[in-house]
Design a protein around this nucleic acid. Structure first.
Lengths: 212, 212, 212, 212
DNA sequence: AATGAATGAGCGTTCATTCAT
DNA sequence: GATGAATGAACGCTCATTCAT
């Protein structure tokens, strides 16, 4: 768990495909630009300038601009799915598992992969229907991780409402944090995670365990 | 309250500025197109075609394309601020007031003003900084309605966490519903509102009152 | 002659067609705007605003925007042809006649009709070939006034070069004054006129007569 | 001096920046179109068609249409300033220097750079104030060449009027030649130059020297 | 792989002109 | 005569993509 909560303010970890290779640098630059200016307002020249190449050279790495967006989305889903799987596997208690999932998701949204996660939400429409479908298949795997844990909690009586609805409310709470959470502020990511989990399983269920 | 919960599946009410006038029809068409395709991918020719005029004629009603976006946002905030104020004023009990606010906000997000509300969230970046500031001033008024009620509930012991944080979690839950809530589905808007309110004030606080 | 040299700094006289009628006010406003911004950069809305009507109303007075330009040019040529004819007829000595013509032309270029005269030179290209031909016919009448006097001076031995060439050099000197002559400056219009005449007939020919 | 007076009927020399490069061809085509139709009535598509490229390709060479106009003006001033300097330096007698300047200026106005010189006069207003100021700085250098010679002639008693005014009258005579001078006509450029110089220094001062 | 000039379709916007009222 | 909403063609400019080098 330490890699999740002990992250540095900036980019403690790195999305797999966003390494020092030309392709990786292109994806990192694109993720940030797409987040800051939007996909449509980011030109391939912007991206090229950011990594120090000419705009024509981009097309040796990606067939179209849309494929860059697609790659950013695929990489961030894969990376965060892996992260969540490892976080869940570190615990056996379902409440602790839920907390680990929330921590991991918050980490992805406001921590190391925040640019790409923001792109995933806000630039969804810029993807062709075909690529949307491919991306959705990956998101389904990610969501299954959540539903498994929530179904178990529901079965064990931690909450009575529909687990699918509960997950949707959680997704809303998490994803919205990108608009307001301040990493330098007094609210720590861990506290926020516990706060969200308490919305689901109630006050009593969450022990005062440390986050380590 | 009946006008809020008894809405027809489609457009029971109408945003003030989006009437049968040319300007109103332009705003309605723009709101839907901006939601469906995004601001940048909607051309003024798209909007013009939708209302049956020539593209040049748009500029008799709005000085720039961005001003159409701005008008959509201003109208929807004004309309929904009024709606929430009226909804709150119909109750004196703070829990009932919170429920009324949540119902009203859900109505705006997944009901009659859903297109414009979606635009407000997803096309924010397309507004110039000057217009963002003007829009934010209107949103502040809207948010004050919420914080007044949440502060009172907090003071009366209905929940112990920071009311500002609670509002942010609620905003996330509400706004995300535009991605999944199905008006034809089995979950009714009223039930969803009660479900959200229970995340804040707990199970016991919300009586089984009817929604009328 | 007094009306020529004793003119007020601004608009002592008025071009015939530019009176207080709607048409006249339109022409005055157009002349000034065409001079300041150029024909192509002046919109009919600019002209309409200047005279306090709506842009559509202009077309009750002139069939096209180009016809406004044409009218400005025709009026100013007619007016200045008349002025020059009267100025010449006030004298019988050919040197005095030439001086009177130069004074009158300078008056038109830097005095009361300066806006319209500037338009005549700088917006010539904006006229259709047909209207250019009509306007040229009027200018021919104007030029004949000059050539009559210059031919007589040439015949009487005041200068030996081709009178047509002399007139062209004079036109250049006169028309260029619109770029530099300062009505508030120390050089008076009368002095400038004598200076120009001396370029043609030499120093000795021009007596030190007063301008009245 | 032979290269100045012995010019071919068409384009004996070439403005530095208007060579066979894409940029040079663009500037030549633009200068001619701007002269013929005016800046505002020349479209970027017109210019592109003239040099056989697509309209969008123009913007690889110039950031805006106005920058093309600016480049035309800057190039022609620089080129003609150099030409005048060389022409003056070929003589030590001030009358001969003045004649050389007039010849050079006429050459620029009705000879090899006539399109661009016309643009300089007639499209001045189409330049932004910033670019006007930059262009004026270059014109000041050009004008200083003239005033140096005229001041010397004035000091040596060749004429008694203000040298600045004399230069302005000369500018008018020269620049107006673009409206009437016919290179195929019987009046030769050299004769016209001597004719103009005689307007300033009088009949006696100009010897019957050959133009070489 | 990289370049960078060129493409060409498409964008937001302008504006002289029309015409029902 | 005056209005002002509407027209529609044309404008300057952008930019993802191509391709000869």
């Amino acid at each position: 768990m330490t890699q999740l909560t002990g992250m540095a303010p900036d980019q403690a970890t790195q999305i797999y495909g966003m390494d020092d290779s030309p392709r990786g640098k292109l994806l990192s630059a694109a993720a940030r630009l797409f987040r800051d200016k939007g996909f449509d307002r980011t030109t391939v020249r912007d991206i090229a300038r950011e990594v120090g190449i000419q705009s024509g050279s981009i097309f040796h790495h990606f067939p179209t601009k849309e494929d860059i967006l697609f790659a950013v989305m695929v990489e961030v889903i894969r990376f965060n799915t892996d992260r969540l799987r490892r976080a869940r596997d570190a615990h056996s208690d379902p409440v602790a598992q839920l907390l680990a999932l929330v921590r991991g998701e918050l980490q992805s949204i406001i921590g190391d992969t925040r640019e790409a996660m923001s792109v995933l939400v806000y630039e969804w429409r810029c993807l062709s229907p075909e690529k949307q479908a491919q991306t959705l298949a990956l998101r389904d795997i990610y969501e299954t991780l959540w539903l498994d844990v929530l179904n178990r909690l529901h079965a064990e009586g931690y909450f009575s409402d529909d687990p699918v609805i509960m997950r949707r409310l959680m997704t809303g709470m998490s994803s919205w944090t990108n608009t307001w959470f301040d990493q330098q502020g007094s609210l720590r990511l861990d506290d926020l995670a516990r706060l969200i989990v308490r919305r689901i399983v109630g006050e009593a269920s969450l022990p005062e365990v440390s986050s380590t």
